[in-house]
Amino acid sequence: MERPTGVTVLAILYVLAAVFFFLAAAVSGYLAQVASTTQLGEIPYAELFFAFSGIFFSITGTVWLITAYGLWKGRGWGWWLAVIFTAFGLISSLLSLPKGVVGIVVLGAILYYLTRRHVREFFGV
């Protein structure tokens, strides 16, 4: 079965998100270094905060890249990861109302799309 166009778009968006997470990790690593050598280091735990932020962003970027691969290749686990991340994002948007309205609309549409029959059939779920 040929990959649905929407799945291709989602996979590309996951790759772009992963790139941004990796950039955030690099910036966090840089700020950890700056914190250790400047007045920023006088803020309690600044260096540790930036170091752990960099680790978090690196792990998150890696997971999103793995999810993009699963979506691209039509793996069932890729579908599950995308559904789980989308559901978490949707819950987060619901908890941040009223400013989460855009997230609710976008993530709701993605979740709706992922649960369509032809998409599930592509992933074998």
Rank of each mutant, 00 (worst) to 15 (best):
L107W: 05
V9D: 03
V119E: 01
T60R: 11
I43E: 08
I104L: 14
L16D: 07
A68D: 01
G100H: 07
W72R: 03
W79K: 03
W80H: 06
F20G: 07
P44T: 07
Q33L: 15
A11L: 02
A35H: 01
G89D: 07
A32L: 05
F123C: 02
T115F: 14
G89I: 12
G41I: 13
I59F: 15
T86F: 00
F88H: 08
F123S: 02
L94M: 12
L48F: 15
L107Y: 06
A17R: 09
F85S: 06
R120A: 05
L13W: 02
P44H: 09
F88E: 11
L95Y: 12
E42K: 13
Q33Y: 15
I110W: 00
W72G: 00
F88Y: 12
L90D: 04
V63M: 14
E121N: 08
S53I: 13
L94H: 04
S96T: 13
G29F: 13
Y69E: 04
T86S: 11
A32C: 04
G103F: 08
E47C: 08
Y69S: 02
V119N: 01
R117Q: 15
F49K: 03
L97W: 13
A25W: 03
A32Q: 02
F85A: 06
W64D: 06
G70V: 02
L114A: 00
L107N: 06
Q33I: 10
S36L: 11
A87C: 11
R117A: 15
R120P: 03
K73R: 14
G41E: 07
E2W: 01
V101E: 05
L65Q: 05
V19T: 10
A82P: 02
G41T: 09
L94P: 07
V63S: 10
T8S: 13
W79A: 00
G108V: 12
I12H: 09
V106F: 11
E42D: 12
F85C: 08
V15Y: 08
R116G: 04
I66V: 14
V15K: 07
L90T: 10
E42S: 10
T5F: 09
